[in-house]
Design a protein around this nucleic acid. Sequence first.
DNA 1: AATAAAATTTAGATTAGTCTAAATTTATTA
DNA 2: TAATAAATTTAGACTAATCTAAATTTTATT
Lengths: 216, 216
Amino acid sequence: MNTLAEENYLKSIYHLSLNAENVSTNQLAALLNTKASSVTDMLKKLADKELINYTPYQGVTLTPPGEKIAINIIRKHRLWEFFLVEKLNFKWDEVHEMAEEMEHISSNELIDRLDRFMGYPKYDPHGDPIPDCDGKFKVHDLKPVSAIEINESGIICGVRDHSAGFLQYLEKQGLTIGKKIKVEDIIEFDRSMILQMETKTVQISREVANNLLITL
Amino acid sequence: MNTLAEENYLKSIYHLSLNAENVSTNQLAALLNTKASSVTDMLKKLADKELINYTPYQGVTLTPPGEKIAINIIRKHRLWEFFLVEKLNFKWDEVHEMAEEMEHISSNELIDRLDRFMGYPKYDPHGDPIPDCDGKFKVHDLKPVSAIEINESGIICGVRDHSAGFLQYLEKQGLTIGKKIKVEDIIEFDRSMILQMETKTVQISREVANNLLITL
DNA sequence: AATAAAATTTAGATTAGTCTAAATTTATTA
DNA sequence: TAATAAATTTAGACTAATCTAAATTTTATT
């Protein structure tokens, strides 16, 4: 098995890989709250284990075995988040830190049974897809609210920013997963958006619109 | 917060304290699968933190704060074991290793909610009492089957040996928590015992009888 | 293309937890 | 009670993961 630190590096490389071909040392250092020199050391170790492809100065990518491990950790993280919200009634902004610890519980049998216990959920409380026991998951393509025009509408299906502060703000505005919204107007001055919802109208900044994801 | 190693030492000291006033370095080394010299190092560290009372060569006891931490870890361990058996349908011999990891999930809010979710269970799958959120628990006094006479009876309420092998053996014989047994005979030669149960009669060795706990 | 800036790696040190081997203390026993 | 055995601690070393500071490589800019 891999150490906690190794698992966290693989997970971070996976996440950063979604936005860029090669993941850089500095990107990892920033995400992992560590120093670039520490990252370099770990990259060598992971490369020795053939979990990443590492060329000095050129960044890294995951090998297939490395990606498998990363996805398995993400599966665990999201299933535990689902458990915490659905079974223990935590709010969606409260579960991230706990799941950061729980994702390292090693047993796959445990996580598969947890999956069954909860009825094989497809999405976690933030709308992120939960990989199945073979690591497969739908990448339903979402767009930020900021990308749609006046009078277009969609259903809230995810967030880009997972910080507690952002999630709490959304909760307060009623902008939660599954809600239908329609763009009523866009303010020219700051491009903030006025959204029509079932029972009310809310105004959100461009920043918020960029981080709120919908399907049409 | 304390490290994983520290938590495991405190937990082990607690368990060993139940059988002896002072816990010795070698006892800890044996239980933790480590060397006496490693134990000494850790004892110094825990003494610095005032979690144990340590006098060189004389063994250790837990301080009140140390005991509180130990009991909290045991609470977590037993609640997770209960969860694994009751909600995820694991068998009683399968859950120990998983709970060894899960007991270190730090959030107390999480464990309190888990407790509520399961209806505040009083005993774990092996019959051990689960401390409540204030660390209190009943120490119902059990005796080994080997301590009762012919024609006396009792209800199985716990085990001394928690190894998977022993638990599997008990399961196969139907000697599980809650079952009523009566001593029908004791074989003089090896003091093995013949137990009358609801639907059948089983013979168990003295060794087994010593490790199977009942209430009268 | 030369130089400056940014990114990355290397070198050497640090901490937690562990180890072996040697030294010391306590317990046992002849 | 002196010698021996057992238990424990100390000394010094090791590994994983991190750090700072210096060196190197890549990228950007005149």
